[in-house]
Design a binder for these strands. Sequence first.
DNA 1: CGCAGATCGAGAAAATCATCTCGATAAAAA
DNA 2: TTTTTATCGAGATGATTTTCTCGATCTGCG
Lengths: 222, 222
Amino acid sequence: MRVDSVPEATLRRLPSYYHYLLRLREKGQELISAAQIGVALGVHHTQVRKDLAVTGSQGRPKVGHRVDDLIASIEEFLNWNNVSDAFLVGAGHMGTALLGYEGFERAGVRIVAAFDASPRRAGKKIQGVSVLPVEKFPDLARRMHVVIGILTVPAEDAQGVAEMMVASGIQAIWNFAPIVLELPETVIVEDVALYSSLGVLSRRLAVRRKSAAARDSVRAGP
Amino acid sequence: MRVDSVPEATLRRLPSYYHYLLRLREKGQELISAAQIGVALGVHHTQVRKDLAVTGSQGRPKVGHRVDDLIASIEEFLNWNNVSDAFLVGAGHMGTALLGYEGFERAGVRIVAAFDASPRRAGKKIQGVSVLPVEKFPDLARRMHVVIGILTVPAEDAQGVAEMMVASGIQAIWNFAPIVLELPETVIVEDVALYSSLGVLSRRLAVRRKSAAARDSVRAGP
DNA sequence: CGCAGATCGAGAAAATCATCTCGATAAAAA
DNA sequence: TTTTTATCGAGATGATTTTCTCGATCTGCG
């Protein structure tokens, strides 16, 4: 029995709709059709309807959806209207970048503390967030009931830190390290696979070059 | 006629295999079976075989694959053995983080210069890479034959900068901004959708909480 | 030298996801 | 008021991806 039968692909598209809708609202637009969203974001309009349907939002024929309603529906569906505290471990380049981001609060996550193993980093403040020695993580996580962990440590440390997180009560990990964490199934892990992204990019580029070269040389039939 | 019939999902898994294989090699392991890879990375073993098959690598029954061969095959398939120069625009938090990353070279990309619209940032060096005024991008990109652009500017500037990149000869864009770029189809765009990732995480967590709550309260039948 | 066990790879079946089709509905136009 | 048109939403169809099944192959052991 599946608890969440919503396709993952839908889940991944919703934030993109959401940001598009925010921009529409800023521009003062009140109504929007699935077809328009589809054109703007490169998604088939029936797909957009199916995606929006899972949030419970309804549109009216000939009118479309109210932008406000859609935004609210998506927020509620993704639980982005309830902000959860998160701890970040690894105050290196990526960790620092994330600490500097505004906008995660809008996505349901507030980074309330950062941790690092290096004494050089611990004790400082980055973007207004304190960096603490990683030894303090377990106790603080439990006391503050933090359930989201953000993992921005080097690959070789990631598994160990992740296990420490889970042992400290963390239920969901946003993982930036390029490894697959081996954790109990009950833990939610969401990988930000930067290298996967680069792999796709690089391959596409290579294929394009190859097919361009082929087009240039093969002019006669086989 | 599709030039590249390799499933995108396969493309996304290959880098993950790749990093796992690198770790195996470091540990001195010479042979590996598809089944073992599957267990380590949470992928079905037949899926692993199909994925590895696209790279052209062959395994031997009862033995498995040579780790070295697999690494080489994946590198070649993703074109990660040829490093291309890339320009980064937007030397903010994320841009700075990417400039500090070692390891992209292994993934076929070398960031050779960064650009920023802010005079406050231009002129400096970050992680050994010069930050130049964004106005210099077009000329330099053409002269250096740079075809990869990395986009780490705020969402509201992304579309404009992307168009500038394309006009300067950029063929592939690694986009970190949370918007869908509208560009000619010939341009390869790879989005790093941080918010999609957060959407999935947040939804999963919410569903888990809900189903846990349901389990706690609904003990009698309907 | 022949058998047992592990692994591969190809093709069939199943599951998932995206697109197409069509009737219904609401607003605007005639 | 009736017709037209834009849009929705549900269900059927189609495409893609994943998993299952099975025969073939190679190694190591008796």
